[in-house]
């Protein structure tokens, strides 16, 4: 569990730095890499795992730290990404059947 927490914290820390300082220079780059990765992890992971939620927390946390949208508030991205993760998990639990 601790391994997962450290891994996702480091992953999303460097990803945020990459997005805000490196990828910003490419005119073709217009997407939100962090959000895409969070959605992918939540879609692909085992339904009983909770790595997607941890990723959503750290992805949101670093997005909040390295941006000022909305101004003067830490937590907007954390809550949004966690809600997205919970929603994906809920959809899978209720409506997707694996054989």
């Amino acid at each position: 569990m601790i391994k997962k927490v450290i891994l996702s914290a480091l992953l999303f820390y460097f990803l945020t730095l990459l997005e805000t300082s490196f990828l910003i220079h490419f005119s073709l780059y217009f997407s939100n890499l962090i959000l895409i990765l969070i959605i992918l992890i939540n879609l692909l992971e085992n339904r009983k795992e909770n790595f997607g939620l941890i990723c959503a927390f750290f992805g949101g946390f670093f997005s909040d730290i390295f941006s000022d949208t909305p101004p003067n508030f830490i937590g907007f991205h954390v809550l949004t990404y966690i809600l997205i993760s919970v929603f994906i998990k809920y959809l899978f639990k209720k409506h997707v059947q694996f054989f």
């Binding site: 300082s21 910003i24 390295f66």
Partner: peptide, 12 residues
């Protein structure tokens, strides 16, 4: 300059 916000016209 050390960074730019993706959705806003602001630099750090």
């Amino acid at each position: 300059i050390i960074g730019k916000e993706i959705s806003q016209d602001s630099l750090f």
